[in-house]
Simulated assay, not measured.
Amino acid sequence: MDLGLAGKTALVLGAGGGLGGAIARTLAREGAMVAAADIDAAAAGRTAEAIAGAGGKAIALGWDLGDLSLIEPSIARIEAELGPVDVLVNNTGGPPPTPASGQSPELWSKHFQSMVLSVFVLTDRVLPGMRQRKWGRIITSTSSGVVAPIPNLGVSNALRLTLVGWSKTLAREVGRDGITANIVLPGRIGTPRITFLDEQRAKREGREVAEIAADSQSSIPVGRYGDPQEYADVVAFLASVPASYVTGSVIRIDGGLIQSI
């Protein structure tokens, strides 16, 4: 299937990580020019180098989403070097494991700015161009915690759910402009983030990490953690021309993990 992404410009946040990196490389293979952004500039650089090594076009940006002042110069650079953003993949880092109660206002504020407010402001920056061109894709990666809250991820569950309400509202506002807005949520995908969470749980419970991982995988109907490529393939489809009638949706890429309908 031709996804129609050749010549499009895609901005992928968190492109130095497992999920973001897979998404960036997959969009590039489909012909998109990719701006790979990450708070870890070296990691973003490795993703951009991998894309270039495979014959694609990419630039790397070191980008701390908690600093809203970086949005304008970063987008200006992308526009100058690749062109206006057609596909925006909002993929932000997660907060540390915490209960929902007892967290300081400073912690809530810090992660709201980096995980939520930055997404709002960045999307508003690229939307006018998408509207003018009558085409755009806004894909926001959240967490299975927005459907079934994950124990000891209280801050993550609360803040990521905000993005779901925002994306659904936005989809209704921009649909007639040829722009789609969708949420994708991973189950347990085999990334460093999942390894970190397994390690943290093992410490809390005094168990081996391998035992925690085995228990976790046994609760997934397909019996394993997902591959980042499996996640990236779904994102690439949502970014495509053939997906023009999919908007306002929450797409689960979870191996059947979430039990609710």
Rank of each mutant, 00 (worst) to 15 (best):
G145W: 09
A239G: 00
A32V: 09
P192F: 08
G256H: 07
L11A: 00
W108R: 06
V87M: 00
G14D: 11
S141G: 09
W108S: 01
E205D: 07
G83F: 02
A232N: 03
V12C: 01
E173D: 09
R201E: 12
G223P: 02
A232D: 02
A100G: 04
R46D: 01
P95S: 03
G14A: 13
E72K: 14
S143P: 07
V209H: 08
G20A: 02
V126Y: 05
I139P: 00
A158C: 10
S74D: 06
A181Q: 11
V121W: 15
G16R: 08
A42C: 14
E79W: 02
G16H: 06
T162P: 11
T92W: 08
I71K: 08
E199Q: 08
G226A: 08
V174Y: 03
V250W: 09
A58H: 00
T180A: 08
G66S: 05
A43S: 10
A58T: 00
L3F: 05
L13W: 14
A171H: 03
W108K: 06
E205Q: 10
G53W: 08
E211T: 04
G223C: 01
V147S: 12
V116T: 05
N182W: 05
A202M: 09
P242E: 06
E81Q: 02
A76I: 04
G145C: 05
A35L: 01
S260H: 15
L27P: 02
A36P: 13
T142D: 00
G248L: 06
G31R: 12
F120V: 12
R224Y: 00
T191K: 09
L122S: 04
T9F: 04
A158I: 13
R188N: 12
V234R: 13
T47K: 06
A42L: 15
E199R: 12
L161A: 11
V155F: 01
I258M: 10
V126A: 02
L159D: 09
V246Q: 13
S141C: 10
R125P: 12
L13D: 09
A202Y: 09
A236Q: 01
P99W: 10
D2W: 09
A210I: 13
V241G: 03
G136S: 15
G102A: 13
A210M: 14
V235H: 12
